[in-house]
Design a protein around this nucleic acid. Sequence first.
DNA 1: TATTATAATGTTATATCATTACATTAATAG
DNA 2: CTATTAATGTAATGATATAACATTATAATA
Lengths: 167, 167
Amino acid sequence: MGAVRQNQRNIRGKQQKSTSMSAANLTYAERVCAGKAVRLTPMRRQVLQIILGSKEPIGAYEILAQLNKLRSEHRAPVTVYRALDFLIGNGLVHRVTSLNAFIACDHPDHNESAQLLICRDCGATEEVTDRTVEAAIAKLASRRGYIKVAPLVEIAGTCATCHNQNR
Amino acid sequence: MGAVRQNQRNIRGKQQKSTSMSAANLTYAERVCAGKAVRLTPMRRQVLQIILGSKEPIGAYEILAQLNKLRSEHRAPVTVYRALDFLIGNGLVHRVTSLNAFIACDHPDHNESAQLLICRDCGATEEVTDRTVEAAIAKLASRRGYIKVAPLVEIAGTCATCHNQNR
DNA sequence: TATTATAATGTTATATCATTACATTAATAG
DNA sequence: CTATTAATGTAATGATATAACATTATAATA
């Protein structure tokens, strides 16, 4: 839980993690889809791969650009959005609402509400599941009479790597 | 705290609140601006008034439409966005990120991080400040090494009014 | 296997949200 | 009253997302 995606600005960072989980996640995605009897088509697989390959949340049009570069063909935006709908619907990708961007889910097996920590400086985004936060929000919503709630929690800030570098 | 904005679908609702606070809020906004020595110009005032008049979060282009109807002139989008920047910057308006829309702040005096409860069915949106949620998020962020955090909490759900009506 | 039904993708157009760049007008300070 | 800064006007464009309908691929089943 909490694998970190980072961009160019902190390749020197100590907390750097390898991108080598990508392949594993892709394999994992295949298993998830097989288990649900839904189809991880080449298109969807490729979109997921592009998202996994990104160190930070990636926008739909950036995905599209990479897709069209790879294949030297011309897909339309809707192609990407459809793949994203599928991937999000099956818990393989999260939408980062505050950035209009997307990240691969770290733990697609449990489809619970995650919280996102987003570094303003380097773009690193980590997905966490904090029971205390979840419980506090559930309680708040319930006290206010809301049911079937879907909480959105995105915490922008400066990550440890970035504020250590600036000293 | 927690005044409710509602749309047409539940005008029959029991928890309906009057829109009569609007004027008070506008007066309040004037005091806030006077206190800070910033200018609540006619344009900004009018945009705020439109937002206050909306029972649910209102989009920038809807604000623009109302503005242009009022004056029977043609303002450009940027006019609205500039007013919004000002109003948000001075704590008079909140952006509802998940809806790309805007609401007037319920308590512009304390500029703290609020949580939003948003009804999927009727659009009613209430702003709350829950210390427990705030604390849990602050702790989470700090444990992860994040500083200068700005949490975004928007809880979509079905409000009491709506789920009572559907029985 | 041929036929039908369903799912996925292609293609084109357009909707929706937001900003840039530069000109003009209004307010304030000296 | 003039210089300076703040606010708004104006036009164009960028960025994100969806609608509508045609075509192709896959799956179900006769």
